[in-house]
Amino acid sequence: MLLSKEDVLHVANLARLSVEPSELQEIQDTLSRVLEYIDLLNELDTEQVVPTSQVVEQHTVWRSDQVEKSLPIALAIQNGPQVVTGMFVVPKILDGGGQ
């Protein structure tokens, strides 16, 4: 098994997914199988291959520093569940401060 239950819970936490205890075993199995499948790539000898970060054969695609029109504010904020004075409202972020 490539992944432990702790790994699964950690990844779930990073992705903000809640995992029921009853689902844990199945996710551990299937996610491990996915990784095993990707492991097939290790059979290839890539010793002489330069790593790539891009599959499109392009580089240095840039634009000149020109200002373009932004969205009207009504459109920009229309998807916000709650908006106050033109700003998106989000809940409290930290667990609490103090020493």
């Binding site: 029109k69 969205l71 033109g86 700003m87």
Partner: peptide, 25 residues
């Protein structure tokens, strides 16, 4: 003059959310 990956104005002290576009949103 503009942002790093889109043409929105790079200017401090503007009305909130008036310089946004699909890229920077």
């Amino acid at each position: 003059a503009s942002k790093l990956f889109c043409g929105c104005t790079n200017l401090f002290g503007q009305e909130p959310n008036t310089h946004t576009c699909p890229v920077c949103l």
